[in-house]
Design a protein around this nucleic acid. Sequence first.
RNA 1: GGUCCUGUGGCCGAGUGGCUAGGCUGAGCUCUGCAAAAGCUCCUACAGCGGUUCGAAUCCGCUCGGGACCUCCA
Length: 488
Amino acid sequence: MQKLLLYNTLSRKKEEFKAINPPFVGMYVCGPTVYSDVHLGNCRTFISFDLIYRYLTHIGYKVRYVRNITDAGHLEGEAGDQGEDKISKKAKLQQLEPMEIVQQYTFGFREVMRLFNTLPPSIEPTATGHIIEQQIIAEQIIKNGYAYEVNGTVYFDVEKFAKEHNYTALTGRKLEELLENTRELDGQEEKKGRLDFALWIKAKPEHLMQWRSNWGQGFPGWHIECSAMSTKYLGENFDIHGGGMDLAPTHHTNEIAQNIAYCGKQPANYWMHTNMLTVNGQKMSKSLGNSFLPQELFTGNHSLLSKGFNPMVVKFFMLQTHYRSTLDFSNEALGAAEKGFNRIAEAFKTLKGLKANDSSSENIPEIQKACYDAMNDDFNTSVLIAHLFETVRIINSANDGKTKLTQADIDLLNKIYSDFVLDVCGLKFEEEGGEALTVLDKIVKVVLEMRAKAKADKNFALSDELRNKLTESGIKIKDSKEGSNWTL
RNA sequence: GGUCCUGUGGCCGAGUGGCUAGGCUGAGCUCUGCAAAAGCUCCUACAGCGGUUCGAAUCCGCUCGGGACCUCCA
């Protein structure tokens, strides 16, 4: 197994990855709350973890990748445990069953993930499917003395926990400062401490999603679902826990506290956080109203977009930036990514038709090693892609006869593309096959033959006319010594 | 206000104490009937001011700018 470094939010540095029980790896990623369409920023996180999942798998780990669907318990509003459940609210608004909302947006999410060519997780559990598990954990936390019940709601006692454990381990914040800076809110006199959060929330009679419990009718708090589901499927202590950076200070901090209060164990050894997607320097978020829906991006149907972009181009655009950096979204950057992506796609096609030479003037094994080095250094896709462009140059040079490659070189280049572009990055190119395309190819070749004849006769007026007509039809002509080629 | 992160060439974006990131754009050249494509070359930057060092974009301090979190958000 290769030496892999990954950045651990817990230690704030890159650490060598050591699996608890190799070759098995347990990875839990906080998934979406399915009360509305996922936007592009959400997608970035899941694309990043898809890459991590793919790479771990590629280098030989057997990964159990759990990504939950939050379909209950996620409240909105300022008051923490006083707000309304997001899904419940949407259901009321649209006069639908909450589960209809859940169904609609869960499927929408999966469809978008499919378009981005991400792999489905090994398990995709839902909060509503694990109500009992959440209750059991809450009960145990009460038994262990870290939670208390008031009037049908169960709160986690942060101050008590913080006396014995490092509550702010993930962010390194000081508890006193958190206490000082927490806003005083109305209607929270139930809670003992200002930082206390709900494990179980008493439901009002009209609340659409509620379950029986020892504390009366209610529903689970947001953080407890992740503790329950990660423990159930990955155990009390597993390898990697991930999510967006914005989840670290509250959601993940509370999740860790719950797990420790429940069983005394830090749930994950490595906590990984992906950075935000920004628009004009500001975080893309639903509440700011600056979010892009993936569909808008694909079709170009958005006021800020000049045209649509293929999902693979969008993914490539994201992969050009490291997952821990913010990525600023713009037409120009996306357009640049599109051209770069197309060059790689073209080189991949060219590679397939490359003819071998007796000797070699390039060091392909070195490039392969550089690709692994890049990925082993905290999944540095920026550097990986830089190396891929190096292969583009080599492939095109070889195609022009300016560079020599042996059959072994060509085979290795094919392996690099297959391993890194297709498997690890999860990019895919337009399908070659299809009967219609085959017929089209034949037709275009007939036209190109006619044009070649015209050129041979020095009838450039005709040859140019043929080329222009084809260009107008969206068919690009590339001339070379061996003849003419075409692409759509 | 507090905590943390960040500031790279026309644009997007990696990065290590000394050695070319890469992509896009622009200019020139090669190839070519022309064009496109491709290759080669050039535009060689690290917010500002100090400090450490033989040497710093990379370490430290200060200043200025941007952002995240502190209230739901991937």
